[in-house]
Amino acid sequence: MKKPTRTPLSACQLADAERLRAKYVERVKESRERGDKPTLNQTEVGERCEWKSPQSTVSQYLNGKVALNLEALVKLSVALDFEPADVSPTLAKGITRAVDSPAKPARNAAAANSSPTDTPFPGGADIEPVDEKYAFVPQYSAKAAAGLGHENPHVESVATLAFKREWLRIKGVNPKNLIVIYADGESMWPTIDDHDVLLVDKSRAEPADGQIFVMASADKGVIVKRLVQSPLGGWIIRSDNEDKGEYPDLMLSRSEINEHRIIGRVIWRGGDL
């Protein structure tokens, strides 16, 4: 079986790796100046993060071979003593480390004491303990076309995205049923933009009027569209983009909707403003 090709890191992810590498070099220099024996190294950092392959895992993050995810960012921020936003402003939006190290108090006490439930991402108080406060949803290389469709012949999990467990509970979803993929194209604009992150609930695989779904079909591949029930009982696959010359409605009979396998309902999307 052919091994899937690793998805190249984006410019933003490569910049995260460069900033992380700079923090690591800075901490190694400090360790050397203190006369630590041995000097701080990648293996020690990985062991502090409790990774099974400590040196290899740290090396892949430092050299931009694997994209940082929020769980790794939080662990590395404690191991190397930095604020998450200093390394990855994108991943760290809305979070502040609750502790700088096991023996140090939070730098931002106000942030550490706040944990609003109306936002999906962790706040300061959510960082410790990690697993109890938020769920890590697998983030896949697959794309759902807001356009003509994607075949996605090879799909791999490239990272995880963290969501507050309380936020997920309020939305009535089980983290085990969730995946994160990406939108590609402009057919769902302005609701969903090109490159937006899509949180998909795989347990919601039945058609529902007015809801947005990720679907797969033999001829179109994977698409993200809104389903609208027609007056005759069939379904309309509709793009939110008002340019119907470019993105026309697709009318389906009751039987034809079964030819489009619903992967799940889109319950949240995130992207640039």
Score class of each variant (00 low, 15 high):
2 K>T: 09
13 Q>M: 13
15 A>N: 11
20 L>C: 04
22 A>Q: 09
32 R>W: 10
32 R>M: 10
36 D>W: 09
39 T>H: 03
40 L>P: 07
42 Q>F: 03
51 W>Q: 08
52 K>C: 03
69 N>S: 10
70 L>I: 11
71 E>W: 04
71 E>S: 08
73 L>Y: 01
75 K>V: 03
76 L>A: 08
77 S>I: 04
80 L>N: 07
81 D>T: 08
83 E>V: 02
84 P>E: 15
89 P>E: 06
90 T>C: 05
93 K>V: 08
97 R>G: 03
98 A>R: 01
98 A>N: 10
102 P>M: 08
102 P>L: 11
123 G>F: 10
136 F>V: 04
138 P>A: 06
141 S>K: 07
150 H>V: 05
151 E>M: 12
153 P>M: 12
160 T>W: 11
162 A>F: 01
162 A>M: 04
167 W>S: 00
167 W>T: 00
168 L>R: 00
170 I>F: 01
171 K>E: 00
172 G>S: 11
175 P>M: 14
182 Y>N: 06
186 E>C: 09
187 S>I: 06
187 S>K: 07
195 H>V: 08
198 L>H: 01
200 V>H: 01
201 D>C: 02
205 A>L: 01
209 D>N: 15
217 S>A: 13
220 K>Q: 15
222 V>F: 13
222 V>G: 00
226 R>G: 03
233 G>Q: 09
234 G>D: 06
242 E>D: 15
242 E>S: 14
242 E>I: 08
246 E>V: 06
247 Y>M: 07
247 Y>C: 05
252 L>N: 10
253 S>G: 15
260 H>Q: 07
269 R>G: 07
270 G>P: 00
271 G>S: 06
